[in-house]
């Protein structure tokens, strides 16, 4: 048995999300290799080689992989992954985009978002917005899966000294090109990695009012998230959406402000350790998952909360 973990990285450094998949691979057992795909990604590969318990790091460093276009990367994963029993990647937007394409090239039915490993072929995963957890067994020769990051504690980032091998093949069918990106820059921690998340919903009223949450977040070292309604209304950008179809978070503390608690929102945060809800409607469903509920007008409570920190 051997697992190929697809690294999440920005060429210069390895993203911690990779370590959640390494942990899932350890739960499966067998050798673990990491595949680093990118352009000028040697630094990320060097970091991957330091992860404890890694057998070898494969590096596909090529201009064809500069922006991780699915059309170019999926054939590489299918080619390199063909000799493994398992291929894993943490459920980031990159993995969700590429992994199913690679699986289809291998004629495999992939398994999305596993939350537990029962055995080498049996896994758990949430379905129906996390209202139900399914146990599924794969009969495919290669198990291709994405891993729910919040369900596996990150494996240690160092202590290892894996060998690094170059993968020469470059795939580029020439059917897609990268045009550009608009990346949100923030000094706050990344939403999916933060220990504290404070999220605002439609109740925030507008984008400017989110400044109140940023101020608290900066005091607590927290990330700021949002409900879909807040994103749809244009208060904040899409990358802040928490939920079934946004980001899945499970911080030590999640503070929901002016969020009603629709099942699609709960799907993205109900595994948080401690949940606080601040909402003026005492009937709001968010209170059913909150450890501490405060029925109050957020425009009074939030400034008070900020002042008391």
């Amino acid at each position: 048995m051997s697992t190929l973990v697809i690294a999440e990285h920005d060429n210069s450094s390895l993203n911690i999300a990779t370590l959640n998949s390494v942990a899932a691979a350890q739960a499966i057992g067998g050798d673990i290799d990491i595949l680093v795909v990118g352009e000028s990604c040697q630094d990320a590969a060097a970091q991957a080689a330091k992860v404890a318990g890694i057998n070898k790091v494969l590096v596909a460093d090529n201009g064809a992989y500069a922006n991780l276009l699915a059309e170019n990367v999926a054939p590489l994963i299918a080619e390199v992954g063909a000799s493994y029993s398992h291929i894993l990647a943490t459920s980031t937007s990159m993995a969700k985009n590429i992994i199913p394409r690679a699986a289809a090239l291998l004629d495999v039915q992939p398994i999305s978002d596993i939350s537990a490993v029962i055995s080498a072929d049996t896994f758990k995963r949430p379905i129906y917005a996390g209202n139900v957890i399914a146990t599924v067994q794969s009969s495919d020769a290669i198990k291709v899966m994405t891993v729910r990051g919040t369900a596996f504690d990150a494996a240690p980032a160092d202590g290892g000294s894996a060998s690094i091998e170059a993968v020469a093949s470059a795939h580029n069918p020439g059917i897609s090109t990268f045009v550009g990106e608009e990346v949100a820059v923030s000094d706050r921690p990344e939403l999916t990695a933060a220990e504290i998340v404070i999220s605002g919903g439609r109740g925030m009223g507008n984008g400017e009012n989110f400044e109140m949450l940023y101020s608290i977040a900066d005091k607590l070292g927290a990330a700021v998230g949002a409900s879909r309604a807040a994103v749809d209304a244009g208060f904040v950008p899409n990358d802040m959406q928490v939920g079934q179809t946004g980001k899945i978070v499970a911080p030590d503390l999640y503070v929901a402000v002016g969020i009603s608690g629709a099942i699609q929102h709960l799907a993205g945060m109900k595994d948080s350790k401690v949940i606080v809800a601040i909402n003026k409607d005492e009937e709001a469903p968010i209170f059913s998952v909150a450890d501490y509920g405060l029925v109050a007008d957020l425009f009074v409570a939030i400034p008070e909360f900020d002042a008391s920190l």
Binding site: V179, V183, D239
Partner: peptide, 13 residues
């Protein structure tokens, strides 16, 4: 496209 970091633009044939 809506991606984890923000927005990405791609062109396809």
């Amino acid at each position: 496209r809506e991606v984890d970091g923000g927005l990405q633009t791609v062109a396809l044939n």
